[in-house]
C-alpha cells in the first residue's frame, strides 16, 4: 500500500500495490477524478485528471 495526498483536498489517499502510472482514480473524500502522474518506489504523485477532450472515447 502506498499513501499520498489528494492535490485538491489534501486528504490522504491510499493506493493499492498494483496501481499503475497514468491510472485514473477518484479521491475518496472530495471525489475529484485524479491521475497517478508519477509513481517511483514509495512515492506517488497525484494530479487532477485531464478534462475530457473532443477525440476521447471508444
Amino acid at each position: 500500500m502506498l499513501k499520498t495526498n489528494c492535490p485538491i483536498c489534501d486528504v490522504q489517499v491510499t493506493l493499492s500495490k498494483n496501481t499503475e502510472e497514468s491510472e485514473i482514480i477518484s479521491c475518496p473524500d472530495c471525489h475529484t477524478r485524479l491521475v497517478v502522474a508519477n509513481l517511483k518506489g514509495n512515492t506517488a504523485i497525484l494530479e487532477e485528471a485531464p478534462k475530457v477532450e473532443e477525440d476521447w472515447g471508444e
Binding site: 502510472e21 497514468s22 491521475v35
Partner: peptide, 23 residues
C-alpha cells in the same frame, strides 16, 4: 494514454495468463 478500469482488467487478465504487458 490514461489507464481506465478497462486497461486494469486487461493487465490482470494478462498476469493470470503469465503474459508480460509493457505499458
Amino acid at each position: 494514454t490514461t489507464i481506465r478500469g478497462d486497461e486494469k482488467l486487461i493487465i490482470e487478465a494478462a498476469k493470470k495468463r503469465n503474459i508480460k504487458i509493457k505499458l
